[in-house]
Structure formats: C-alpha cells, structure tokens
C-alpha cells in the first residue's frame, strides 16, 4: 500500500497566535484508508486539513501528496486530487444556482460541457438534491447546503475527500445515506477519506481514528483501540460509546467494567435475563 498523504514534522502557527495550531505533526495516510479525525473544539483539526489542501503553508516540515512534496509550484496540481467539504458550506458556494455551483469545480478542470452536465446531474442525484438544481444555494436549508457541498466535491471525482463535519446538519437518516454513499464509492473506485467528526457512530465506519489535542496527535489507532479508552475518552472531548454507558449503569448486574461492544452486551444481558 502506498501513502497518499504524508506529513513530516509539520508545524503551523496562525499570525499573532501564541500557540501552535499544528504542533510537529507526522502522519502517513494510505491510499483508500478512511480516517476519522477527532478532538475538542480548537484542537487543530481544520487547520490540519487546510495544510493538506495547501490553503495555508506550514512554517516548518514537509507534506507529500501522492508521493510528491508540495510546494508553491505544484500545489495547484495536487489540489485537483483533493475534494474538501468545508465546515460551513456557505464558504464554498460560488454559483448563482445549485447546478452552476456543482459545475464550478469541473469547469476549473476543463471538463467538456456535455460531460459536465452529466456529472453534475449524477452528483446531485447521489445526494438526492436533483430537484433543487435551479435554486440559489443561499436559499437552501442548512442540511440541503451540506448535501450540495458534498455533491460539488463528488462531481470532481477526487482521489482524496476531506469532510469537515460535513454531515453535522443532516437528520440521522440523511447522515447515514451520505455515509453509505461514500462507503459504496470506495468499493468502486480508489478513494481516501479524511473525515473530521464529533459523531462517535460515524467513527465506527472508519479504519482508523486520529485524536488531536492542542495541535498534537495524542492517539492513533483502529476504532476499537480508541473505544477501549472508556471514560478517558472524555479527556479527548469524545463521548463514551453508548454501550459503555449502559454497562456502567448495570455494573452490579454485569460484575465487570470496560468497553463491550453491542453484540457482547446484548448477549450478556440475555443470559442474565434467562438465568433468573
């Protein structure tokens, strides 16, 4: 497996800030990986993705995208491989209508008109927004804006998709639909996903979870390794998994502590219920 993103000792400080927003981060992300980035507000998640997309330049360290070290000259080429959905979708709307907006990224890539129309339609269909093609993006509801922003990124068929809390305003069904959609795309094409999220359920879909705290990586493991932290998760601004909370409330009955997955917990409870 090759590294699609590689960061070596990357540090970044915002002008006039007293602390580093990104503090000596080294990180390898493999092609096709789904990585969740979590951490408390202000821990440096968005900054990390802005560095990867070259929207800001690191003060020290190196960033490699698909094996190529990023510099001023090649950042524009590198960026073509990266689709980023911003935390607030208002920041990325440029078109007067939803379809213009989704087409914008394709125009930039010089896609032919005929092909463009097809890809725009397809992308809007994927997020179930085809009926809103002619609308002004600013007039959409919050969740609808998030869907259009996702369509805009899917249309350019990037190798890397970065989602910065991109489903935070979707209803639970809508969120699942979008996540399933991304999951399915990964089966058909090579797609690396970097997803910033506060939703513990969403992290379960990922191959790996990276926890940031004050600009540093403080944990990097598969989801189970993270959930095993139990109450310590709160230090990282994460919620304890639901099953741990239930197990905690039934400590006397279960006679044990620590993380159990849902299946395990249901099994144990059913046994207890048939014994007595």
């Amino acid at each position: 497996m090759k590294n699609i993103i590689s960061m070596k000792n990357v540090t970044y400080t915002y002008p006039e800030a007293e602390t580093h927003a990104t503090d000596d981060i080294s990180l390898d992300i493999q092609e096709n990986e789904w990585v969740s980035i979590v951490g408390r507000n202000g821990s440096g998640k968005t900054t990390l993705t802005k560095l990867i997309d070259g929207l800001i330049d690191c003060d020290s360290g190196d960033i490699f995208i698909d094996g190529v070290k990023i510099d001023e000259d090649n950042i524009w080429d590198a960026r073509k491989n990266i689709g980023i959905v911003f935390q607030n979708p208002d920041h990325q709307f440029v078109g007067a209508t939803v379809e213009d907006d989704v087409a914008f990224g394709l125009e930039n890539q010089g896609v032919q008109r005929e092909d463009m129309i097809k890809r725009v339609d397809h992308a809007l269909q994927m997020v179930d927004m085809q009926d809103y093609k002619k609308r002004d993006p600013q007039s959409l509801s919050g969740g609808q804006k998030q869907r259009v922003a996702i369509a805009g990124v899917l249309a350019i068929e990037p190798k890397i998709i970065i989602m910065d809390e991109s489903t935070s305003m979707l209803d639970p069904d809508g969120r699942r639909t979008v996540l399933d959609l991304i999951q399915n795309l990964r089966k058909k094409q090579s797609l690396t996903v970097l997803s910033i999220t506060h939703d513990i359920e969403e992290t379960q879909l990922s191959d790996r979870i990276i926890v940031l705290k004050s600009g540093k990586i403080v944990k990097d493991s598969d989801p189970k390794g993270i959930y095993d932290l139990g109450p310590k998760l709160i230090d990282y601004g994460l919620e304890e998994p639901f099953t741990s909370l239930v197990a905690d409330g039934l400590r006397d009955e279960l006679g044990q502590e620590g993380y159990v997955n849902e299946e395990g917990l249901i099994d144990q409870l059913c046994k207890l219920n048939s014994k007595m």
Partner: peptide, 13 residues
C-alpha cells in the same frame, strides 16, 4: 436555538 450544538465536541455539547 437552531441546531446550536452542531460543531460542538461532545463534552462541550
């Protein structure tokens, strides 16, 4: 409060 906790970390929420 219109979705006031979207974007807040769980502890903050």
């Amino acid at each position: 409060l219109d979705e006031p906790t979207a974007g807040l970390d769980p502890v903050g929420r």
